[in-house]
Design a protein around this nucleic acid. Structure first.
Length: 475
RNA sequence: GGUCCCAUCGUCUAGUGGUUAGGACACCGGCCUUUCACGUCGGUAACAGGGGUUCAAGUCCCCUUGGGAUCACCA
């Protein structure tokens, strides 16, 4: 019944991500999108974005924007779309009519209230709450009464498919009832619309959450009624919280963009998400390009997985450690400004970032760690001061500044040489001067390496900080 | 309740009839070290239970148990 639509698409795979715009892009949706995107890219097919907004009341443009922002941030670009189902209402109506004309659908005049009552009753009696077929064989009538259109589903036999992830799944048709494909107000319902869209868009493989498994047999029956090819299905297990309940806000953030705001890198989230349910031998680290090579839907696991922030954190730390300092510095700017610091005023941010790479698991930690480089007044760690500042400290620090001033090219090796020289001359160990310098420069007992800090701060700022520390802490 | 799905360390997983059941995160120890980290070396830790099939079962079959999804004029 859907004519010619398949022709132009026969030779390539076409996948789609079809979120409903009723909220942000959450991590579960992002993973589904990622799997679709990967398969499309791997097989040189097309990745299509479709917005399922047939529920006009709950859909918002704001949600659409949020979803697109999330996709873009993750690096998942789409080849076609975004298409909006709300633009296709006439098309859906046309197909409803075709089904009606072919006797494969019928008008049902039962009211929502009646149906609800029947459902309740059936449930209470321990029966199945399915439609009882009251209007299934009614003679056609045009008397103006409100009606919904139901799909006349076969009542015998079974419907099955070979799920790319779960294997063969089969349902008895007797378990299925006649689903509503058009509401009283004339708008189409989800299960019908997905089929029409996937068919007309030439979707070859449907990868979606496994909460759709139960919808699949009905949809297959619809494809068959429409006489169009049935796509392959792959149902991705869902993501659980630490208590093994479906991941939700009470487990923490679920929105993709919230992870950006918490200082996660998109490549870390992508890497984490793909490994949640999929693996490739003993490998843990995957770039998007690696994944395009290595990903396969058949290797996605069948069981649900627990979202584990610790591992995400580890991956994030990995990508920070190995990241390009210039890029990281750029990404860090908004976090610095959030903390009231203008990174333009002070040491080069990328040089600062370089000293912090191995000490930060998130961009938030990176920003916090970078703060002292840009602050005039440091809050010196009291315990540290008590422990590392004594009668000799001022003299040693002054000597250090003197010697540093004489160094031609102030870099880590030359700075280290200065420290060694002082230790030899004074017959002391590094521990007798290092911690004090660290305190003077950073205010803290935990910081990047002393030599690195001096190099990044520069001679003038180093001198200023040391003198200020002497004045405040010794004098 | 009906239907459908799932089940290897705490977590993510490898395993496709014969393995000392492997890796990763986390955790615990050693080493490295100017702090904090990083790194590195090592350690603790799993086949839900019961029946089969087989010379041999984490791997195949059945049952039990436990989890989950879904049963809308929502998507």
């Amino acid at each position: 019944m859907i004519t010619k639509a398949k022709e132009p698409f026969m030779s390539q795979v076409r996948l789609r991500f079809a979120p409903s715009p009723t909220g942000f892009l959450h991590v579960g949706g992002a993973r589904t999108a990622l799997f679709n995107w990967l398969l499309a890219r791997k097989q040189n097919g097309k990745f299509i974005l479709r917005i399922e907004d047939t529920d006009v009341a709950r859909s918002t443009q704001q949600s659409v924007d949020a979803i697109l922002e999330g996709m873009t941030w993750l690096g998942l670009d789409w080849d076609e779309g975004p298409f909006y189902q709300s633009d296709n209402f006439p098309l859906y109506k046309e197909y409803v009519q075709k089904l009606l004309d072919a006797g494969k659908a019928y008008k049902c005049y039962c009211s929502a209230e009646e149906l609800e009552a029947k459902r309740e009753k059936a449930l209470q009696e321990g029966g199945k709450p399915k439609y009882d077929g009251t209007c299934r064989n009614l003679p056609p009538a045009e008397d103006g009464r409100p009606y919904v259109v139901r799909f006349k589903a076969p009542q015998e036999g079974s419907t099955s498919w070979n799920d790319l992830i779960k294997g063969r799944i089969s349902f008895e048709n007797a378990e299925l009832d006649d689903l509503i494909i058009q509401r009283t107000d004339g708008t189409p319902t989800y299960n019908f619309v997905v089929v029409i869209d996937d068919a007309t868009m030439g979707i070859t493989t449907v990868i979606r959450g496994d909460d759709h498994v139960n919808n699949t047999p009905r949809q297959i029956l619809l494809y068959e009624a429409l006489e169009v090819p049935v796509p392959a299905f792959a149902h991705v297990p869902m993501i659980l919280g630490a208590d093994k309940a479906r991941l939700s806000k009470r487990h923490g953030a679920t929105s993709v963009m919230a992870y950006r705001d918490m200082g996660f890198l998109p490549e870390a989230l992508v890497n984490y998400l793909v490994r949640l349910g999929w693996s490739c031998g003993d490998e843990e680290i995957f770039s998007l390009d690696d994944l395009i090579q290595k990903f396969s839907i058949e290797n996605v696991g069948r069981s649900a997985g627990v979202f584990n922030t610790e591992k995400l954190l580890w991956l994030n730390a990995h990508y920070i450690k190995n990241g390009d300092v210039k890029r990281l510095a750029g990404l860090l700017v908004p976090f610095m400004k959030e903390r009231g610091v203008d990174p333009e005023k002070g040491p080069e941010l990328s040089a600062v970032v370089k000293t912090l790479l191995e000490r930060a698991k998130t961009m938030l930690e990176l920003a916090d760690g970078a703060l002292f480089y840009y602050q005039e007044e440091l809050a010196y760690d009291e315990k540290g001061v008590a422990k590392f500042f004594n009668a000799d400290t001022a003299g040693l620090l002054t000597l250090l500044v003197d010697k540093l001033s004489g160094v031609e090219r102030l870099d880590a090796p030359s700075i280290e040489a200065v420290f060694k020289e002082i230790c030899e001359e004074k017959g002391i160990k590094l521990g007798q001067i290092g911690p004090a310098v660290r305190l003077a420069l950073s205010g803290s007992t935990a910081s990047p390496g002393i030599y690195e800090m001096i190099e990044v701060l520069g001679l003038d700022e180093t001198r200023t900080r040391i003198q200020r520390a002497i004045k405040q802490l010794v004098g």
